[in-house]
Design a protein around this nucleic acid. Structure first.
Lengths: 215, 215
DNA sequence: CAAAAAACTAAACAAACGTTTGATTTTTTC
DNA sequence: GAAAAAATCAAACGTTTGTTTAGTTTTTTG
């Protein structure tokens, strides 16, 4: 049993490198993480990075492409489903918060990558991926508007608010601790806080989107 | 006239270095900007950075401390003024959007710095500065709640939404171009877009915060 | 179980890094 | 206008960077 575990571990040295790299890139940024630093943290020889990934840059690209979230199918399913528009938005909010919270290290990386003008091909990759999802969400909002369920809000900037609120929460760990008056720890990404976050997001967007049909 | 301009320019080589550094740090990140790169872009000798700032790190700290926004006085003035709570929030939104848009290069830097766990003293400096402002804004929201003008929303996360929406707009230039369906340029930070942004933010937060007092 | 392939390693590579030096030019001071 | 101070420069400093090499160990294959 134990032997097999160790055996598997050795086989997956490549995967292990990717995981350690993700953590370090998220914590310190791509440029600040040296191959030696990464190799030491992952407990492998320096040359193994070039051996498996050719170069540091290609390691990064591999990480980016392999972990890029595949949310489009889920979003399209929600859009196509036969439920009120607000329930669709509610599902979208749940999904995005869960995805971002669980994979927050990766999302820190891609959001930092977006804010830099260093590697245009990365920016394009991330932006394209986001643009497709954005289009679907805009579809949900416009559908709600046409069906008389949603107000005629600024759909694009509403999405920017949803996305922006979540990504700021993920990016600024220290800030979130201060905001929620919790002691400084990753606990701000725990279940309780996540539910609180969902409640807030739904409350805000509901007030923003829903028409007051009552007299 | 022209001679004096050149003369002033030469005198302010230190200031010029700071400005170029701000632009480069915002575009490429601290680690990716080398002294040689910075010196070439600013058209000064490599040794001048050490001459004026001792080290690259102290240049960064100098930039951070000298440009850290001083918004507290403005916020406290708004809080103390004798106007409806919503008008206070409206002023806060205007001020933050203007400040962030005008100094977006600097804000890109400090937000990236917050998301990294590289230089804890920087994180502390930025977080402290933010925490003070946040407290004042929370004061405005709680005042509105006590006066029966605002709903009992989650004040902390409402601030996170406001801050998060703006900072995402600043950070993700490419994303904003896609969202607003504009051609890729810094024009998304022009006057028209800024007004659109303010309208959206006020519309959303108003729906979120304001009680429907009408029957 | 020997040969081939894959995995792994220590050591070395050139290039780029932040910083310093020591000399030269420019500016300020009296 | 000479002496002192400040500003500027090219060149070199020792490290660290990402990457490669050449050899060894381990695993797979027939």
């Amino acid at each position: 049993m134990q032997e097999q575990a160790i055996h598997t571990e050795k086989q997956d040295k490549r995967q292990h490198l990717l995981e350690v790299a993700e953590r370090l890139f998220a914590e310190q940024g791509y440029e600040a993480v040296s191959i030696r630093h990464l190799a030491k943290e992952a407990d492998v020889n320096i040359a193994m990075v070039s051996y498996y990934f050719e170069s540091k840059e290609k390691l990064f690209r591999t990480l980016l492409e392999s972990k890029m979230p595949k949310t489009r199918a889920v979003l399209e399913e929600v859009l196509a489903s036969d439920i009120p528009s607000w329930e669709k938005m509610s599902k979208v909010i749940d999904m995005y918060i869960d995805k971002f919270f669980v994979n927050r290290a990766f999302h820190r990386i891609i959001m930092r990558e977006m804010s830099l003008q260093q590697r245009p091909e990365h920016v394009q990759l991330i932006a394209d991926n986001f643009a497709r999802n954005m289009k679907i969400i805009r579809g949900i909002i416009e559908e709600g508007q046409e069906k008389g369920q949603f107000r005629y809000v600024d759909a694009e900037l509403t999405i920017a608010s949803m996305f922006g609120t979540i990504s700021t929460a993920i990016n600024n760990h220290k800030l979130m601790c201060m905001l929620t008056q919790q002691p400084d720890s990753e606990l701000v990404y725990g279940d309780d806080y996540r539910e609180r976050f969902k409640r807030h997001m739904k409350s805000m967007l509901q007030a923003h989107l829903l028409l007051n049909t009552g007299g």
